[in-house]
Amino acid sequence: MLETTALPRKATLSPPLDTRYQVETPEGIDLPLRPAGLMVRALAFSIDLALRGLILGLLFIVLAMLGKLGAGLGSLLIFGVSWWYMVLFEVLNQGRSPGKQWMGLQVVQDDGTPVGWSASLLRNLLRFVDLLPFGYFLGAISCLQHPGFKRLGDVAAGTLVIYREQPLTRPQLPPAEPRRPAFALSLSEQRAILGFAERQGELSAARVNELASILAQPLQVPAPHAVAELNGIARGLLGPA
């Protein structure tokens, strides 16, 4: 999650390596959203499809007992479930149909705000074109070539399917004596050292040593002490030193 925040003025942004989609808010903040790719969306759709089949199947069993009235209700239900299932869930459940909920996805507008009635209706009506000529062919092609993984319906409606933000837990920093670095750190170096300390719990000891030893020479410490030195600097950046 490293990003160069303070770029020198007029520096050209290098094209990002990841697929994050930046939304600039009126407050001048760049909010990164993480668009969801084809596979996870296809999975979410399959879940929704299965669920819809299940709902219809159950309802038809009930309606079959009602006779003629049931047949009329049945047509209304097919219509409702096939055209409105997605719209209702997306608008009323914060952009999440059950399948999307399961896969941790969410539909939002291009500017990161919750999806509204008209946008949701539009993206789901145009699903008909995405399905053409068979099995989401156009939708898949559009999704694969678009930087935000949008299918045609998303392009027209101005919506985006993103990964929902998961709540963060505060990482435990390894214990170390806070110390000042021997030389001034640039902003990205500072972020890198903090990132190294915060993510240490997720790495194996060997990997931690390997990463730290790269910096042993510039830090002017023997390689085995590099980890402690880096942790110390991270501690020093966070709190009093």
Partner: peptide, 17 residues
């Protein structure tokens, strides 16, 4: 701007979003 840790920035970012 001050290069605080990713955890702080990410959680602030979530709140802002």
């Amino acid at each position: 701007e001050r290069g605080y840790s990713s955890f702080l920035i990410d959680s602030l970012q979530q709140q802002v979003l």
